[in-house]
Nucleic acid binder design. Structure first.
Length: 206
DNA sequence: GTGCGGATGAACT
DNA sequence: GTTCATCCGCACT
C-alpha cells in the first residue's frame, strides 16, 4: 500500500478559518481522495457551495440547534458531514470553522483523476464523461462515499484532501446561486456556488 | 407510530 | 423542461 499521508495533505488549520465562503473558493483545485476496499480513487474539486451556519436559511443548521443529522456540522472543522438526500444520494460536505459554529462546504463536482476504471464500475458506466462525477450524489457514488464516512476526518487515511499547488485565480471562479435551495427565500440568491471557469467537469451551467 | 419533505440524478418528451 | 425513483430524519400525534 502506498503512502497515503504525505506533505501535500491539507493541514487541519485550513478548515478552521472563520470565512466559509473563502474556504469554498480555496477548495477549488484541491484534490479529494478516498481509499476504500483497497481501491484508491480521487479527483480535483471543480465545484463547491458554501453553507454558513445559523445565519444562512439554506443551511441545515440554520435554526442553530444540532440534531442527530446535523450535529457533525457543529464539530471542529476538518471532518466530513455525509448526508443522505432524497433517500438515495449521499452528499459530501467539508465541515469548517470551530466547534459549535456550523459551517460547511458542499462538494458538488470533481474532475476524475485517479482510479477512473474503479469509478466507472461503481457508477455502472462504460464511458468517461461529465456525468461520472458532476453532481454531489454522482461523485459520492464514484468515490464510494456513504454514511460510513460521516464524521470522518479529512486527515484520515480513508478520505482526505491534498493541495497540489494549483492556484485558481478569482477571475477563473464563476460564482452563482446555489442549487435546490429555493425554499431558503432571500438566502437562496446568495452567490455562494463556485465553479472553475471553462472546466468541463462541473455540473451543467444553470 | 406516522406523515412528509428534501443541498438529486437520470431518463424521459 | 418534466417526471420519477425512493428513504431517512424530523416534527408532529
Amino acid at each position: 500500500m502506498e503512502k497515503l499521508i504525505n506533505n501535500s495533505l491539507l493541514p487541519s488549520s485550513f478548515y478552521l478559518d472563520h470565512d466559509v465562503v473563502k474556504i469554498a473558493k480555496k477548495l477549488l483545485g484541491k484534490y479529494v481522495f478516498t481509499y476504500s476496499n483497497n481501491q484508491l480513487t480521487g479527483g480535483m474539486i471543480v465545484e463547491t457551495e458554501a453553507y454558513s451556519g445559523t445565519d444562512d436559511k439554506a443551511c441545515h443548521a440554520y435554526k442553530g440547534i444540532p440534531t442527530k443529522r446535523t450535529e457533525p456540522m457543529f464539530e471542529n472543522g476538518g471532518i466530513a458531514y455525509v448526508y443522505l438526500c432524497y433517500g438515495m444520494h449521499f452528499l459530501l460536505n467539508v465541515v469548517t470553522n470551530k466547534k459549535n459554529i456550523p459551517h460547511a462546504v458542499l462538494i458538488r463536482a470533481i474532475e476524475p483523476k485517479i482510479g477512473l476504471d474503479i469509478m466507472l464500475k461503481r457508477r455502472n458506466k462504460k464511458i468517461i464523461d461529465r456525468t461520472l462525477t458532476a453532481g454531489p450524489g454522482a461523485l459520492s457514488q464514484a468515490l464510494n462515499i456513504t454514511k460510513k464516512d460521516n464524521y470522518k476526518s479529512f486527515l484520515s487515511s480513508s478520505i482526505w484532501i491534498e493541495d497540489k499547488n494549483i492556484i485558481i485565480n478569482d477571475e477563473d471562479i464563476i460564482s452563482s446561486k446555489r442549487i435546490g435551495v429555493s425554499y431558503a427565500k432571500e438566502d437562496a440568491l446568495l452567490p455562494w456556488r463556485f465553479r472553475i471557469k471553462n472546466n468541463n467537469w462541473t455540473s451543467f451551467p444553470k
